[in-house]
Design a binder for these strands. Structure first.
Lengths: 336, 336
DNA sequence: CTGTTTTACGCAAACGTTTACGTTACCTGT
DNA sequence: ACAGGTAACGTAAACGTTTGCGTAAAACAG
């Protein structure tokens, strides 16, 4: 497993190892003839440059850290895949860490990544932290937040317009004749979920609807949480004709609970999600939802991060992408 | 962003930087008193050890490479999550790369990871490569394959007993009275899928059933592939009463195609999968399937890899875990 | 009190690169 | 032919650690 180094190659080639370095790293200070000769020897000897040593002197690793609450959520795993592929095409590798929806762990892996000397960090935050502890970290390394609005802080972020997205959803349900719409969400310690809720509330006001809000005590937008909360909800009398969930995974959990409670969707109650994960398109799920342009979010986040790595003094950037309605069959019009 | 080094701390503490190094790295060659004093100064100055420099001299990075065909497949993204969490708890970070079901890309990212000086590689292979090109890489760094049987090669791997799993599935369908069972699978250039097919065939022979096999020309076990292939299948006359898929994602695609073709599951045809991804438990999917013990696969793979990092000369290890039947509602008994 | 071991620390080399600077040798223009 | 310039390569320092070795002082045994 002992690998061959520049020094080894230089001995064989009969040149200094600086020359070999210039040959492999594409420096212009070398003749084409010797370059070809040296590269040939490198190939024969199976030389691969040690990127650790290179990082040491160049003071950059070409590694990006990614902190994600969970990979069991398809929205996040698909985003992760897009991020990794695009980053690699731009010459960066990803070090991925699960925060498991845990604030403390999130901060812990963040400093771990800093110790790893990553050139930048992309983070899908669990929610809003006490900003002090977070900014102590973002000051140390270029960071962009994804899928979370950091509008009150000097941070880079790219997200969908969550406020507008929920407005679109609420308006859509209202246009179908729903007047009693339940907003069903995760605990809003994240600005993202706060904005979604506010979008709902603002539309309610504008449309003259009475708001109904049911929120989980977990910040996790998982199927299990949706299922548990909805099972309880369905066991009691209710007046709402539509349920608007703050995430598709939550909606899928709700659907499961509805199924077990003998409540048909959309016959008995209409159901909407938010995210447009790929599973929502299945005919058995067929969930009307709000789309997040994940691919564009991924490429923009990487671009944004690399820009800030190149120029750490650059002003903070925010990018808010437009959501769109994906109409499927989980909602139906009701008579007035 | 200029970080504080050992040298900076040593100046303040009035000791040599070797002493500071011993203080932070927990060497016994230092008095408890000075250790406490130095660690206090470290904290005050915000010192974080540079793991790149450490890797340089220790000749190990505490980084593991993970190569995975896709993160859009829940089986793989859940496995990835388990691997990352367990590896991190054992002091290793994961560098994740998508191979996008591409053999050439798979080899390319593998050498990329070697250049990154990862201590080991965990790989979910796309399928069987020409073994020469692969072994040229596995010789350079400890590697364990996961979810793929490498029984014909001197490699470490952990997988479920795919052969037995498909036997269990076939036997189960037969016990429900099905005599005409379609095996619906991805192209078998992977040993995993070859073994699954063989398990089916062996059970067919044992049970006196005529085998029916339909295989995709893609190695990708995605919903789209299942949907496309099944749409075509359902458009023609058929005699099978049950469809046994080589992966849950394939089965979900089949279910989608069945839905659109007006074919009810399990009323018109029974359907089985393999993998037991979390979505299969949804009441709308409710797929009878074969469980893979992913969590145990993940921890075993990491343990196995770390063992071989510690002792690279150790004999190759193979671990084959037992599959189990998860009975849900996508299959029904038929009359003889 | 002497001789030996142990403890706690400093010194310096090493890990494999990159790159500023120095040094040739060759080329150019006059 | 000569000054000046340039192309091509070598020398050595630097990046931030770890660690073997050396050494002084402290601890210990007799």
């Amino acid at each position: 497993m002992a690998s061959v180094t520049l020094k080894d190659v230089s001995k064989v080639a009969g040149v200094s190892y600086a020359t070999v370095s210039r040959a492999v790293s594409g420096s212009p200070e070398i003749s084409e003839e010797t370059r070809r000769r040296i590269l040939k020897i490198c190939k024969e000897m199976g030389y691969t440059p040690n990127s650790i040593a290179r990082s040491m002197v160049k003071r950059c690793t070409n590694i990006l850290g990614l902190i994600v609450p969970s990979l069991n959520n398809p929205f996040m795993s698909e985003l992760t895949a897009d991020l990794e592929i695009y980053a690699r095409n731009r010459g960066y590798n990803l070090m991925v860490c699960n925060s498991s929806y845990d604030h403390d762990l999130e901060l812990e892996v963040f400093s771990l990544l800093i110790g790893r000397q990553v050139d930048g960090v992309i983070m899908i935050p669990v929610g809003h932290e006490p900003y002090d502890s977070l900014s102590a970290l973002t000051r140390q390394v270029p960071t962009v937040f994804i899928s979370e609005n950091m509008q009150n802080y000097p941070e880079n972020y790219v997200s969908v317009d969550n406020f507008r997205g929920m407005q679109i959803a609420t308006e859509y349900l209202c246009s179908l004749g729903h007047r009693e719409i339940l907003y069903f969400g995760a605990r809003s310690d994240s600005k993202t979920h706060e904005l979604r809720l506010e979008g709902y509330l603002s539309s309610c006001e504008k449309l003259g609807l009475a708001p109904h809000v049911l929120r989980s005590s977990y910040s996790r937008s998982s199927r299990e949480v949706g299922y548990t909360l909805a099972s309880d909800y369905f066991s009691r009398p209710r007046q709402e004709t539509a349920i608007l969930c703050s995430a598709d995974m939550l909606a899928i959990g709700v659907k499961q609970a509805a199924y077990e409670a003998g409540i048909r969707i959309p016959k008995d109650v209409s159901l909407m999600g938010f995210d447009n994960i790929s599973f929502s398109a299945l005919p058995e799920i067929d969930l009307t939802t709000i789309n997040q342009p994940t691919q564009q979010m991924a490429t923009s986040a990487v671009d944004m991060l690399l820009d800030h790595i190149r120029d750490p003094e650059a002003a903070h950037t925010r990018l808010i992408l437009p959501p769109s309605l994906i109409e499927r069959k989980s909602c139906r019009p009701i008579k007035a």
